[in-house]
Simulated scan of single mutants.
Amino acid sequence: MIDYKIFYEAPAPEEYNELRVKAGLSSKDLNASKTGLKNSILAVTLRFGEKLIGMGRIIGDGGNFYHIVDIAVDPAYQGQGLGKTIMTELTNYLDKNAPADSYVSLIADLPADQLYKKFGFDYTQPKSVGMYKRY
């Protein structure tokens, strides 16, 4: 196990995008990233020294709706439980702060759905399906 540290702060937009791409997610506009990151309800980052090796965020309205996004671990550090650590930190926050009957959602890339199931997430089908529109 590596000696990483957990921080509760958003990464810089440049390193955010770098980790997204390394982890197989899409790159995002730097200005949009700057705005989005500062508006996070909670950001969790894992660092090995100064290097960003993992992250995850909660976004939403802070009352009724929360959405977990940006769960990413540098491929060089995958398989060491870091995704589980990030999800533990995010769900601990929600357990303490989300009001009763809040709706917490996420979009799971496969096979990450297996990790999220361990934290009590379930598929929305057949009652609903995830949808999106890109600009």
Rank of each mutant, 00 (worst) to 15 (best):
N97K: 15
D122F: 15
M1K: 10
T35V: 13
S102I: 04
L19Q: 04
K22C: 07
T88I: 09
K51I: 11
I68R: 03
K96D: 14
I59E: 03
L30G: 07
S105K: 05
G79S: 10
K22V: 00
R57K: 05
K5R: 10
E18R: 12
L46R: 00
V44W: 01
G130L: 10
F48C: 04
I59S: 07
G49D: 08
G56F: 00
Y103M: 08
S27T: 10
I107S: 14
G24L: 09
V69M: 15
D74T: 04
Y132T: 09
Y132Q: 13
A32F: 06
A76D: 12
F119H: 01
S128R: 14
L94C: 09
I71S: 02
S128N: 14
I107G: 00
K133A: 10
A32Y: 06
G81Y: 11
E15K: 12
Y8N: 05
L110E: 13
K96E: 14
A43Q: 05
G62N: 08
I6V: 13
P11R: 01
N31E: 15
L52C: 02
I41E: 01
K127V: 10
L82N: 06
F65L: 14
L94M: 10
Y66G: 01
E15I: 11
P111M: 11
H67M: 12
Y93M: 02
N17Q: 09
A112F: 05
M131S: 06
G56M: 06
S128M: 15
T91E: 00
Q125N: 11
T35L: 15
D101E: 15
Y16M: 00
